[in-house]
């Protein structure tokens, strides 16, 4: 096949199966939507988010920290007991 400069990904598309990678992407998009929608109304802690999006707390931590890293969410304030941070959408 002729390889067009700047579109070499098409070359590998013919050779590689990407079903699993697409499933991962789908999962990330779903989780991102769930978390961002949940944070639209209020700032939430991991515990509150876990209840709202029906996901285990450790999964929430992983996705939340990733969303902070990629600039979707930011860390809010600590609670009165200095134990849990709340998280909010990055404006």
């Amino acid at each position: 096949m002729e390889i067009e400069k700047g579109k070499t990904y098409k070359y590998l598309r013919e050779k590689r199966e990407v079903t699993e990678a697409k499933e991962n992407l789908k999962r990330f998009n779903q989780v991102r939507k769930l978390i961002l929608d949940a944070l639209k109304e209020n700032d939430l802690t991991v515990d509150q988010l876990s209840l709202k999006v029906d996901m285990s707390k450790d999964e929430v931590v992983y996705w939340l920290m990733s969303l902070i890293k990629f600039g979707y969410v930011q860390t809010g304030s600590l609670d009165d007991m200095d134990e849990y941070f709340s998280y909010k959408l990055k404006k």
Binding site: V46, D47, L64, Y84
Partner: peptide, 10 residues
């Protein structure tokens, strides 16, 4: 943070 629930460990 605790990876299990985001608590600042004491």
């Amino acid at each position: 943070l605790r990876p299990g629930d985001g608590k600042v460990p004491c």
